[in-house]
């Protein structure tokens, strides 16, 4: 009997701790999750942009989910340059054909994948974008070529609603 009692007690302790831990977790989770994007932020999911006034070689920047989106109407030279790059030369290999379904239009988040600055247009060693914060160079397809950024600039989900309108998101 003296050997059995401690086992029973240990079981009760362990069970109590377990229930207590679950209880604490259940209380803490709402306090953590309240910091995640709320319903009103999530509701601003898509944006429609009229691109009829954009001439070849020009970029417009629109705000989507609080972030700038670059919409560039690329020239023939830029398209050729972007499509002739060898995959081995890329830090984050992606085909330009996959990034710009319609080769004339490049739509991507204007956010440097290093630490989130907005890269500058028509700058850098690869005729595309250059981030002034920590010196990342992007090519005419928005792919990272040189500098600390690990990834290409992200292409968001988008579609042409008609010939002149792009819907982002």
């Amino acid at each position: 009997m003296s050997e059995k009692k401690p086992e029973r007690r240990e079981f009760l302790f362990t069970a109590s701790y377990a229930v207590g831990a679950v209880g604490v977790g259940a209380v803490v989770w709402p306090l953590i999750d309240q910091m995640n994007p709320d319903a009103s932020v999530k509701a601003l999911a898509s944006t429609e942009v009229d691109v009829s006034s954009v001439k070849p070689g020009n970029t417009i920047t629109v705000l989507w989910r609080g972030k700038p989106v670059f919409i560039r109407r690329r020239t023939k030279d830029e398209i050729t340059e972007a499509r002739s790059v060898k995959m081995e030369d890329l830090i984050h290999p992606e085909k330009d054909e996959d990034r710009a379904k319609n080769p004339e239009w490049l739509v991507m988040l204007g956010v440097c994948t290093h630490l989130g600055c907005v890269p500058l247009n028509d700058k850098g060693d690869y005729d595309g974008w250059f981030c002034p914060c920590h010196g990342s160079h992007y090519d005419t397809s928005g792919r990272i070529r040189k500098g600390p950024a690990p990834l290409n600039m992200e292409v968001p989900k988008y579609e042409f609603v008609n010939a002149n309108t792009i819907k982002i998101g």
């Binding site: 953590i32 910091m35 995640n36 994007p37 709320d38 932020v41 989910r65 609080g66 972030k67």
Partner: peptide, 10 residues
């Protein structure tokens, strides 16, 4: 995203 409470600093 959790730190921001959104998709950018806002």
């Amino acid at each position: 995203t959790w730190l921001w409470g959104g998709y950018s600093v806002d």
